[in-house]
Amino acid sequence: MKKTVVALAALAAAGAAPAQEIVRIGHAAAVTGPVAYFGKDTENGARMAIEALNARGVVVAGKKVRFELMAEDDGGDPKQATGVAQKLVDARVNGVVGHETSGTTIPASKIYHQAGIAQISPSSTSPKYTQQGFNTAFRVVANDIQLGQALGRHAVKDMKAMRVAVIDDRTAYGQGLAAEFAKSLKQQGAQVVAREYTHDKATDFNAILTRIRAQKPDLVFFGGMSAVAGPMLRQMKQLGFEARMMGGDGICSDEIHKLAGGAMADGQVFCAEAGGVDAAGRAGLDKFRADYRKRFGIDVQINAPYAYDAVMTMADAMVKAGSTAPARYLPALARTAYRGVTGPIAFDARGDIRDGSITLFTFKGGKRTVLAVTK
Rank of each mutant, 00 (worst) to 15 (best):
T4Q: 15
A13K: 03
A16K: 09
A17C: 04
P18R: 05
A19H: 08
Q20W: 03
V23H: 06
R24V: 14
G26A: 11
A30Q: 11
V31G: 00
T32S: 15
P34L: 04
K40D: 07
N54V: 12
N54C: 10
A55L: 03
G57N: 04
V60Y: 05
A61P: 01
P78R: 11
T82G: 01
G83F: 08
G83L: 14
K87T: 13
L88Y: 00
V89S: 12
V89C: 11
V89D: 05
R92I: 02
R92T: 05
G95Y: 02
V96T: 09
E100T: 08
G103L: 07
G103R: 06
T104Y: 04
T104D: 08
T105G: 07
P107T: 14
K110E: 15
I111R: 10
I111K: 06
Q114F: 02
A115P: 13
A115G: 12
K128G: 00
T136L: 02
R139V: 03
V141H: 04
N143F: 09
D144F: 07
D144L: 10
G148I: 07
A150H: 01
D158Q: 14
M159T: 05
K160Y: 02
M162E: 05
M162C: 02
A165S: 14
V166T: 10
T171F: 10
Y173G: 03
Q175C: 01
L177Q: 01
L177V: 08
A178G: 13
F181T: 08
A182I: 04
L185W: 07
Q191W: 01
R195V: 02
T198E: 08
K201Y: 10
T210K: 09
R211E: 09
P217M: 15
D218P: 13
V220H: 01
G224P: 09
V228F: 00
G230D: 10
P231K: 11
P231A: 12
M232R: 12
Q235I: 04
M245N: 11
I251D: 00
S253N: 13
E255S: 13
E255D: 14
H257P: 01
K258R: 14
A260Q: 08
G261H: 02
M264K: 01
A265W: 01
G267D: 13
V269C: 12
F270C: 06
A272D: 04
E273S: 13
V277Q: 10
D278S: 10
A279T: 13
D286Y: 03
K287T: 14
K287Q: 15
R293T: 12
R295L: 03
R295V: 00
D299G: 12
Q301E: 15
I302Q: 13
A304L: 07
P305Y: 11
P305C: 12
V311H: 00
A321P: 06
S323I: 11
A325Y: 03
A327Y: 13
R328P: 02
L330G: 03
T336N: 11
A337N: 15
T342S: 14
G343Q: 04
P344W: 07
A346F: 04
F347H: 02
F347L: 08
D348G: 06
R350A: 11
G356P: 00
S357A: 15
S357K: 15
L360G: 02
T362W: 12
K364S: 10
G366F: 14
K367M: 08
K367W: 08
V370R: 14
V370H: 05
V373Y: 01
T374F: 02
K375R: 15
